[in-house]
Design a protein around this nucleic acid. Sequence first.
DNA 1: TTGCTAGTTGGAAGA
DNA 2: CTCTTCCAACTAGCA
Length: 487
Amino acid sequence: MTHAIVWFRKGLRLHDNPALLAACEGARRLYPVFVLDPWFVNPERVGLNRMRFLLESLQDLDRSLRALSSRLLVVRGKPVEVLPGLWRQWQINRLTFERDTEPYALTRDGQVHDLAQPAGVEVIVCTSHTLYDPDQLIKANRGRAPQTYQSFCKLVARLGPPLETVASPASLPSLAEVTEAQYPIPSLSELGYPAQPEAEPSLYQGGEHEGLRRLASYLSDPARVASFSKPDTDPTAFEPPATTALGPYLKFGCISVRTFYTQLQAVYAQLKSHTQPPVSLLGQLYWREFFYTLAYVTPNYDQMVGNPLCRQIAWDDNEPALRAWAEARTGYPWIDAAMTQLRREGWLHHLSRHAVACFLTRGDLWLSWEKGQAVFNQLLIDADWSINASNWMWLSASAFFHAYHRVYSPITFAKGYDPEGHYIRHYLPVLKQFPKQYIYEPWKAPLAVQQQADCLIGQDYPRPIVAHIEAKERNLGRMRAAYAVAP
DNA sequence: TTGCTAGTTGGAAGA
DNA sequence: CTCTTCCAACTAGCA
């Protein structure tokens, strides 16, 4: 007689969830469990927006389970400590979960695995967070991860399409020995997060239903799918953003990447022509997969030291400059507006991420990409360990990207998209009244213009913390020196 | 072994 | 305002 736990971590969905199906298979009892690990429940590590998104996703999952006469059990504590108690209490003999390749998860799951075996609990691990099994990709590539995106694309072309999606369960085995009052979904304030300001509703509502709705909505415009070209999208667009903004839903597995792939291929099949990787929508799914594969097999992937892919660079240590960047006080309106959007909404357009990352590292402030990575990890709803580390190495020219003389200008880059400065005025209302010729460089405005705009630079909005042209020239020299050392 | 090619998304100056 | 050209770069993958 099978009593099973399906352990949700990512993969917060009923559709295309092989671990859920494996738990149900022939089981008399099914316990759907999410373990709120105190390691994650920490506003410094997981910011307000992401924690809220997670709780919303858990609520949505709970509603879906209740529609099938079950519910979600949210257990508080470290998984290695609470799971053994639960499987004794519920006489569990099967545990299923989705494979997670991040280092913290690999360690955690390995420990749980080791505890389950002697307790007579069969462990079933399913791959569904990525299109392909990363081990399969590595094996098919002669034991190493593809080092370039192109070679990754060649590899998946050789392997053929990913595994097909699996159906949602039509019914679930029942729960027992759990009262309604036990294992509730906590509120943000119960977890020690500050109460959400009334005026700031979240732009990204968590959950499988919302994720699938947004996916369907995006794919319902074939012309947009056909012409999607990531580098050509506008980072200053915010109502709505210029890309899919489905990252948060993929990060938590509210939508399955394989479902995304399948539905996207169905749209492509109806089109006469469409864009291709790397810039296409499919290309975005492949970037995700490429970075997951690299991060899986590379030691110390989120650090410079001990990371064989990462160029060793003597970054400065400058806590005030780091704080100014993180708190949107650099004095460059485009950079500060983007950092404000990140902090307020938990999401940023890809090119905005590029611009602020370049500014922090090789462009202007010469601070370590690891510092920026930590801020993004805290503030982004879609903070994804593998992808975040990859992009920070990319932008800081520490790996993958080497044309380090290509530096994003904190003044002219966004001006090309938004000469009026709508984006800046929206996120930095203090600058709202500046005329357009000064909106990207308000420190250049004559005092009379500053007074007219009701914003004195150095008082109401900071002066630039660094002179861009001079900093860029100096940093180019330091980059050249770093590259001159053998890799 | 060596040489060749191409790579997701820049900026500034000048026509 | 739009287009072209130059600036000056490095490496994985492959023939």
